[in-house]
Design a binder for these strands. Sequence first.
RNA 1: GCACCGUUCGUCUAGCGGUUAGGACACCGCCCUUUCACGGCGGUAGCACGGGUUCGAUUCCCGUACGGUGUACCA
Length: 484
Amino acid sequence: MSVRVRFAPSPTGFVHIGSLRTALYNYLFAKHHGGVNILRIEDTDRTRFVEGAEEEIIATCRWAGIEFDESTEKGGPFGPYRQSERTEIYREHAAMLLDNGNAYYAFDTSEELDKMRERQQAAGIAPKYDRSIMRNQYTLGEDETRRLLDEGAEYCIRMKVPLHAEISFVDSIRGPVTFQSRDVDDQILMKSDGFPTYHLANVVDDRLMQITHVIRGEEWLPSTPKHVLLYQAFGWEAPQFAHLPLLLNEDRSKMSKRKGDVFVYQFREKGFFAETLVNFVALLGWNPTADREMFTLQEMIDTFTLEKVNKAGAVFDYKKLEWMQSEYMKKSAPQNFVSVVKQELENKGINGIDDDYVVRVITLLRERVQFPHQIADFGNYMFEIPKSYDDEFRNKVWTEKAQQALPEVIALLRSAEDFNHTALHQTVQAYLAEKKMGFKDVMNPLRLLVTGKSVGAGMFETMEVLGKQATLERIDAMLGLLTH
RNA sequence: GCACCGUUCGUCUAGCGGUUAGGACACCGCCCUUUCACGGCGGUAGCACGGGUUCGAUUCCCGUACGGUGUACCA
């Protein structure tokens, strides 16, 4: 049987970085096995529904390079792929369970349930629906149940969990896992609003959509016995489960928005590349080899296996993410960033810069910045004559000695025929040798004159890209600023 | 509280009975050098603890500790 997996997010807000990884692993797994990757929207909780969230999920996955073979957008042979459009299916399946004695009606109000839990907590026992004393089909009897139903009373349908049974399954990542049914609650299957809970919907859909592997976050591990029981109640074979380790904050708690950025869009807005985020997040909990960090999507597809997924949660290390971003910044083609840089320039009121020139500037500066959008600011002097300078730097390098030497160096530049960096380097070097001075005496002041800044690319390389005329213009202008 | 899951440098990890416990990020030092970086070289730092099993345990088993998740008419 060919592999079919699903990413099943709830449209309740922005895509969490952990969801991105779950989606990614599902995708990698599907592609690795030549299988099918499905997007299913789990919107059975109307109270948490967020307008536009579904679109955001799709857009985010697309940005990350994660493709779906079947989805709400694309359709497919097992649709609809939005659970809110499948309520009739869940109703039918709940009825099947009612018929075969694996589910029952319950009429308790939330107040009554709260009280029950309070009592249990006070008595020091685990909070769990007590079907022997609450208001349900069993305690009320068939006639009364029928009457309440006919009368239109609010009800929900609960799963009848066996009293004493052992529930086991083999998790692809964790191995055999066993629960006792006495610890499993009589989970609500159909809510009083007519919508199913996650548990019912997920089992029914995974079955109907012929899902072979359920790859999801570890937070689902404790409710998996409910799902296993449901498969049994329906007489179905359960899919293979794989519970992924959690992504953690620095304090090792589940990664949450209270402790920093957790939404994909936040990283995207900061300028992180999809490649960076995908590569980084993939390696949080999975590693195909010990000696590499950088992988293309295709390489990940080729090497992905669940056996290589770790069991323990992984702390999201922002510093390492930044390092990886810098790596991608350096290795990506400068052409990719031209439009970003030009947009930044336009924001600064600088227009009409030649694309080729922008590429040369990006090539010059990309090792010094983390994101393309920083180039316009970091290298402003490449696009305009600086109107200010770094005061601290000036005080440090604009020395008596420098002021004496600079005019001659500038004259050298002015008369230079060849303005490429090697030629410039040789010219200045020869001059310095003659004067018994070092680069240090003259290069920093020169940097001040050309850029106004203390940091940047190599000075000769900078001047080469700038060109003779622009270099001299900047020097003259800065000289004017400095002497006022 | 109860249930389940987990535990190799600060962090991400390699390791699947015998290794000087390897790599990456971060950190520190040195080199390169026209600043900052990049790059190169080197360094600090780890198998949670206690019992077994075994000729031999980081590795297998059992406890303990610690951490995490779950415990909803949310997913």
